[in-house]
């Protein structure tokens, strides 16, 4: 009789254990062969759009759609560049050739653009004229001396920085503005990089990572 009940109880225990293993943790299916990325490509797609408040944001930045995107790359917007330029149009001052302006230099007149020191690629590769044509300073110029509006300055950068340009177009480079929904809004190259000195400078971090150091000394 006892033998019988030992048998019964051990069966019960094994059933319990089997149940435990069966339910345990990750469902077995996920493991191995099929990854997350494999799945998401087969799922239904829906594109989420901005709500109206974010459209106002887009307006406030006077965003414009980025031109010249390769086939298949989703469109996106950047803030207008012209709105951020203080002394535009340049032709206000540059109404005669540069050589003539230089001749007019007199001690009482302040030097224009004194704060610009070109630190970009090196003098033997780039000077002011690489991007700014001497004839029409209201526009930029490409390496092939074709005029390019300031709002499309990214195309100028993209001439040399091809890999960064490609990443920016796709979305791997450049700071996202607005939200994650469409339409996508991204900072343009000169939004972050000073075109005359594109390298970002070192600075102090805005805070410490943990409590530890503060207690020690720094405050």
């Amino acid at each position: 009789m006892y033998r019988h009940s030992v048998y019964l109880h051990s069966v019960a225990l094994w059933v319990l254990l089997a149940g435990m293993l069966g339910c345990a943790r990750h469902e077995a299916e996920h493991a191995g062969a099929h990854s997350l990325l494999h799945h998401i490509q087969q799922l239904p797609v829906d594109t989420i759009a901005y709500d109206s408040s974010l459209y106002h944001f887009l307006d406030s930045l006077a965003a414009i759609e980025v031109a010249g995107l390769p086939q298949g790359v989703p469109s996106f917007y950047t803030p207008r560049r012209l709105h951020q330029l203080n002394s535009y149009p340049c032709s206000n001052c540059h109404d005669r050739p540069l050589s003539q302006l230089r001749k007019e230099k007199s001690p009482d007149k302040k030097k224009a653009h004194w704060d610009i020191l070109l630190q970009h690629a090196g003098e033997h590769i780039m000077d002011c004229n690489t991007c700014h044509p001497t004839q029409d300073l209201d526009q930029l110029q490409t390496l092939k001396a074709r005029p390019l509006p300031y709002d499309m300055s990214y195309q100028l950068c993209g001439q040399c920085h091809t890999s960064q340009y490609k990443d920016w177009q796709g979305g791997a480079h450049g700071k996202a503005l607005g939200g994650w929904v469409t339409p996508s809004l991204r900072q343009t190259c000169v939004g972050c990089h000073n075109p005359h000195k594109p390298a970002l400078e070192k600075r102090w971090p805005s805070r410490l990572n943990t409590v530890k150091l503060i207690n020690q000394s720094l405050e």
Binding site: Y2, S5, V6, H9, S10, L13
Partner: peptide
């Protein structure tokens, strides 16, 4: 009580 004892062993 013996059935309970068996259960308690496991």
């Amino acid at each position: 009580y013996i059935p309970g004892v068996f259960i308690s062993v496991f």
